[in-house]
């Protein structure tokens, strides 16, 4: 790649010499373009090749710089986490009000969408090896009797048969929805992604 027997570019001036008429900016743009289309005057210049190597090293180090900083951070006690969590509010995720039936005309009974999502999450979590992700209730849940589609995403860890797990989740979710709500559930769509591989990697 680079010609090691050549003199390295002289950076003592403001604009480095030894780059055969090119500037660092041009070389940087060349790298941005993945060196295409090829520029013979750059590729054939030993000074440029060395400078390109330097720029690449700079980029490589930059990418790991933040990670190094993060690792070098002093150990914090848990209070910084607690203070962050204490600042969060609940209502952001309450969602729509789902009506609960009652004979009395003066009754306004409901369960929040947020509460139902939490319940769906717990149902999915109850299946071995499953961690529930996002839940969606599609359709107008504020209207009694409206057919509703439920979408559930999840991660699976050490699960042999994903199809069986999907069925287990579907069953658990349906059972809980019927137990706790008056929703008219038309379909429950479960999408599970195998996340076992992430456990194998060591950080």
């Amino acid at each position: 790649m680079s010609n090691h027997s050549a003199e390295p570019a002289d950076f003592s001036g403001d604009e480095p010499e030894g780059l055969d008429g090119h500037t660092i900016e041009e070389l940087n743009d060349y790298l941005d373009r993945d060196r295409t289309p090829t520029d013979a005057s750059i590729d054939n210049s030993p000074g440029c090749q060395i400078a390109l190597g330097t720029l690449e090293r700079l980029r490589g180090l930059t990418r790991t710089l933040l990670d190094r900083d993060a690792l070098a951070e002093p150990e914090r006690d848990d209070s910084w986490v607690s203070s962050i969590l204490a600042g969060l509010t609940r209502e952001v995720h309450a969602g729509r009000d789902i009506p609960i039936t009652h004979g009395s005309p003066n009754a306004r009974l409901s369960v929040t969408e947020g509460a139902v999502r939490g319940m769906i999450r717990a149902a999915g979590d109850s299946v071995g090896g499953i961690v529930t992700g996002r839940c969606r209730l599609e359709g107008d849940v504020t209207e009694l009797g409206e057919p509703i589609n439920v979408l559930v995403e999840a991660n699976a860890f050490w699960v042999d048969r994903l199809a069986d797990a999907e069925e287990d989740v579907r069953r658990a979710v349906r059972a809980e929805l019927e137990r706790h709500t008056d929703l008219n559930i038309e379909a429950i769509d479960v999408t599970i992604e195998d996340a076992t591989a992430s456990l194998a990697s060591t950080e």
Partner: peptide, 13 residues
């Protein structure tokens, strides 16, 4: 005389 009683479930479990 109650004209309206509203009960909302905000969390389950």
């Amino acid at each position: 005389e109650a004209s309206e009683i509203s009960v909302k479930v905000c969390s389950i479990g």
